[in-house]
Design a protein around this nucleic acid. Structure first.
Length: 229
DNA sequence: GTCAAGATTAGT
DNA sequence: CTAATCTTGACG
């Protein structure tokens, strides 16, 4: 017989455990929604736990998605997008920023979810130092910012999210009605894909990235509310 | 080898 | 609005 553990404590333990592989075995849009409210934890070597609640995500597909790195097949950079789900895809861009993604879907089928913003919950002091003394609301309110704050870089590319370096925990339960959707940021090309609401966030959450609204360049591509899937 | 563009951010 | 900063991947 093991030690008796109160039910509430069991729930806490369950919450503090990495989400199982099966959690990631679905398409990118479903996962992008499911990731909202989950806690991203980085056990930064020699530093400790840095964590935040995911409040904004974007879904990326494979060959058919012109905005995806996987659009033109496997390359050295995007290879993990084609691998098994539950793995980190971290890439470097604009010569200075990293972006953290969660690989999902069945193995062999490229798909991933970009984590665009967090609500910081653990390691705020260090995050603030790394972010140049930024205000709490600015620490992790963008894909590049959150990587700086949590110390995420390419060393974590291909890291297993069921390992001991970086993982996700269950966190909060989110009601579907609390989720808002809109066009992906920085995707102002590929006309017929621009309006697709593959960006998700917690409605009204102050830690969501401030983005200029995705501008639809060509008339006729503009859509509001529901768009083709 | 060469080169344009980038799933961004901070500052003017 | 634009500079910063350098990797990636397409093309020759």
């Amino acid at each position: 017989m093991g030690p008796r553990v109160p039910r509430a404590a069991l729930r806490t333990l369950a919450r503090a455990r990495p989400l199982p592989r099966a959690f990631y075995a679905r398409g990118p849009r479903a996962l992008a929604r499911a990731l909202l409210g989950r806690v991203l934890v980085h056990d930064d070597p020699g530093v400790g736990r840095l964590a935040g609640v995911i409040v904004e995500t974007e879904a990326y597909g494979g060959a058919d998605d012109p905005a995806s790195h996987a659009h033109r097949g496997v390359t050295a950079r995007n290879r993990v997008m084609f691998g098994p789900p539950g793995v980190a895809y971290v890439y470097f861009t604009y010569g200075m920023h990293h972006c953290f993604n969660v690989v999902c879907g069945p193995e062999g089928r490229a798909a991933a979810v970009l984590v665009r913003a967090l609500e910081p919950v653990e390691g705020l002091d260090l995050m603030r130092r790394r972010r140049g003394g930024a205000a709490p609301g600015e620490l992790t309110s963008g894909p590049g910012k959150l990587c700086i704050a949590l110390g995420i870089d390419r060393r974590l590319d291909a890291a297993d999210l069921l390992g001991d370096r970086i993982w996700l925990e269950a966190g909060r339960r989110i009601a579907p009605s609390a989720i808002a959707a809109g066009p992906r940021v920085g995707i102002d090309y590929a006309e017929e894909w621009v309006g697709r609401p593959w960006r998700f966030w917690l409605r009204g959450n102050p830690f969501v990235s401030r983005t200029r609204p995705a501008v639809v360049r060509r008339a006729g591509a503009a859509r509001s509310g529901r768009a083709p899937t």
